[in-house]
């Protein structure tokens, strides 16, 4: 089984800046093309898991390991994880003044592939991806996330997902703060990503809307740093109706 695993998380415990323990012995097994959903109350540690998987140095692994395509990446820096094919759509993307969205994506693309970026081809695929996400072309030239609305920032994250097409993507509340139409557009973008690349997903969410057009393979419930339950796609609807009460 481990042979075909894309991402394996083994007994992972995490503290913040080596002091505050947040996650306790987390186990996950994600195969190519699978969609996993992670749900849980506010403050349960969902974003912490996303940051840890992606290698944010503030989140210190105190126990266990992370294995991606058979390679132990627990100590790998974040840029190397990205190069290996991992991606995180941030719950709160950062604003970076002075660098445009398009040149940022171009730099990232170049950093990941090492190959020179052909400008025209790049612009064409950027334009196509922006169309899927109903983003106005002018956003490409705006400073990265600067002055973007909450929803626009989320779209810009999915735009990066489409352009960088990783093997595995974590979407941290990509749907929150989006209006009804935007959720539909974004989930179309996610679908597109999965179709194109047979990409695997770990979707952190509080709602079901983004999941409507996706087939969910597993649902995990995280409470106070522990995965307390794992079920199939139907668990999402159940939680949506009854909340987390029965897991707490």
């Amino acid at each position: 089984m481990s042979e075909q695993s894309l991402l394996q998380v083994r007994d992972l415990s995490v503290s913040i800046d080596n002091e505050l323990p947040i996650l306790n012995r987390i186990n996950l097994d994600i195969k190519p093309g699978e969609t996993h959903v992670l749900m849980g109350p506010n403050g349960a540690g969902k974003s912490t898991l996303g940051f840890t998987l992606m290698g944010n140095p503030h989140y210190v692994v105190t126990e266990g390991n992370i294995i991606f395509e058979g390679q132990d990446i627990t100590d790998l820096s974040s840029d190397k994880r990205a190069k290996a094919g991992m991606f995180l759509s941030f719950q709160n993307p950062y604003e970076v003044p002075g660098i445009s969205l398009s040149s940022f994506i171009r730099n990232a693309y170049h950093a990941q592939t090492g190959a020179p970026v052909k400008l025209l081809a790049f612009q064409k695929s950027l334009k196509a991806a922006m169309e899927i996400l109903s983003m106005d072309e002018s956003y490409a030239d705006r400073d990265l996330n600067v002055g973007f609305s909450g929803g626009e920032k989320k779209k810009a994250e999915i735009l990066q997902l489409l352009m960088l097409s990783p093997k595995f993507a974590i979407l941290d509340e990509t749907d929150s703060g989006l209006d009804v139409d935007a959720v539909r557009t974004v989930s179309k973008g996610v679908e597109e990503y999965q179709k194109k690349k047979d990409g695997a997903l770990l979707i952190i969410t509080h709602s079901t809307k983004i999941l409507e057009s996706l087939h969910v393979d597993y649902t995990h419930v995280l409470v106070k740093g522990n995965i307390v339950h794992t079920g199939d796609g139907s668990l999402v609807d159940e939680i949506n109706e009854h909340g987390f009460e029965r897991f707490i």
């Binding site: 290698g55 944010n56 840029d79 994880r81 002075g98 660098i99 730099n107 950093a111």
Partner: peptide, 19 residues
């Protein structure tokens, strides 16, 4: 944030400063 997109630490800092 920049590193999570594959950019090295040094380049990420230089990029923020250039920006």
């Amino acid at each position: 944030y920049l590193m999570s997109r594959g950019i090295t630490e040094e380049d990420a800092k230089a990029m923020i400063v250039s920006g």
